[in-house]
Nucleic acid binder design. Structure first.
Lengths: 264, 264
DNA sequence: CTATATATGAACGTTACCGTACGTATAATA
DNA sequence: TATTATACGTACGGTAACGTTCATATATAG
């Protein structure tokens, strides 16, 4: 019996991460690497729930694991001095949490907070180092993600400078929708307002308009995307650009020198 | 006789890049690598002026050179469908233009446009590849920059969500000041308004307020920073965070395996 | 079943910034 | 020197989003 976030309304309260027994591998980095590399990583990975509000680790802290989400949305939050916090980047099954692993730095960047629940594979940096030693395709795939994350970040910088609340909310919902397996997922308007740095009242107003247009339904912490196209019409071009950057990752065939014993 | 941008008011019109004969190496990546690696790169580099308004290359275009600024500010611009453009990232002597070199992709990200004139070393990707083969410290230094660029981008995402025009203008001016050698540099209010995605009228109003406070002087395309501290008081915390990220780069001593014949 | 906490809707005046337009001073050009 | 272009100052009404507060509906807990 597979875990379905839409059928688990109590998930929100289970802040203590729990190990997920049976699951689908949906993380695109893991799906892009060679089967033997995937088998290696899966043998070392621990799959845990991502519970809404869960803080994976704090900014600047030395991190011990990279986290590869299969489902859900985790946001790297910036903590401002006045107490406000806002999203720096959002991560789903297209990527992984712990980007500074790529850069060789020991400290995390940003504070990852789960906004839409799901589940993820935790892999220790020791295991990852070992995997990369054997399977270069692993670091290749992570590096490709680093590039698309850079595109996401740049696009977000521009988007946050120019675009309006409704466009940005629509964009965020579309990204979230891409990162879950169901049209319905757990997400409060409060959550959206916090990641986008706007008032809940503004989000409420935007969502109300989107509901009237038929793009979505909202019921106490659960959104249902009823018409993506309407959402896409309301979103800015930034959505497509970021999606395009992520889309390139899985498909790009890497000239793989992995697994020497399997090399041609 | 060294070239001084503050003494060359006609520079703005010389859109055709010109080779700079005598210059100081101010680029922090180049200054951070081993002397022999620097000597190698300098033997291959071509030093050209960065002229205000110059477009180094266009978004998505295969790029042939990485550009290491010694002086000036170059912005990666996003071109929106409605014709507006806005900054995704700004680059000075702390980094280089052509970040996707790091990621192994052949295409550039964003359209680099010179906002504050200066000069830079152009190094072909072939020469860079060769250098990295011999001197790992080169890729180490570039990778460290990639990390701090990521920090810059994330901080900018958050900043653009939350902070006001005056804070953002102050922050941008401080970054620019860090990237030039003089307190006076060429920069129009129009230029600021375009990179920050706000009206020139808004920039004008902000600058007028900053002038009244004594932070700067403005005279037809030339800014003079007269009191950094006032500017820092008006800027948001994002300035310090980004500066800190860049500051770490030059000083971090890399466990260098470069240049085998010189290894200990 | 009742009480409490949570999520959303809706309203108020306020503020920051917008789009636009026009005037003015300085620099470049003829 | 006269003319044009550029950079900046300023002003107008308009609007998007702000901070705040209160009401309402639904879920959870006792």
């Amino acid at each position: 019996m597979r875990w379905d976030p839409a059928k688990d309304p109590r998930e929100v309260k289970q802040l203590k991460p729990e190990i997920v027994g049976d699951f689908d591998t949906r993380n695109k980095i893991l799906l892009a690497i060679r089967p033997d590399a995937l088998a290696f990583l899966e043998s070392r990975a621990v799959v845990k729930r991502l519970s809404q509000g869960q803080v994976l680790y704090t900014d600047g802290e030395p991190f011990t694991h990279a986290v590869f989400p299969h489902e859900g949305v985790t946001c790297l939050m910036a903590q401002m001095q006045d107490g406000r916090s806002v999203e720096k980047a959002s991560i789903g099954n297209e990527g992984f949490i712990g980007i500074s692993f790529i850069f060789g730095g020991g400290n995390s960047i940003g504070e990852p907070v789960v906004q839409v629940p799901g589940y993820a594979s935790w892999i220790s940096i020791e295991d990852l180092d070992e995997a990369i030693e054997i399977y270069p395709c692993v670091s290749d795939a992570m590096m490709r993600y680093a590039k698309s994350l850079t595109v996401q970040l740049m696009e977000s910088v521009a988007c946050n400078s120019l675009h309006k609340a409704e466009q940005r909310v629509s964009r965020w919902l579309l990204h979230a929708h891409d990162r879950v397996s169901s049209d319905t997922f757990q997400l409060t308007q409060q959550g959206i307002s916090e990641v986008l740095g706007m008032r809940r009242a503004t989000v409420s107003s935007v969502c109300h308009a989107l509901m009237k247009e038929g793009a979505l339904k909202y019921t106490r912490g659960n959104v249902t995307i009823t018409d993506r196209r309407i959402l896409e019409d309301n979103a800015c071009e930034c959505y497509d650009r970021i999606r395009l950057a992520f889309a390139g990752n899985g498909s790009v065939k890497t000239k793989d020198k992995s697994s020497p014993e399997l090399d041609d």
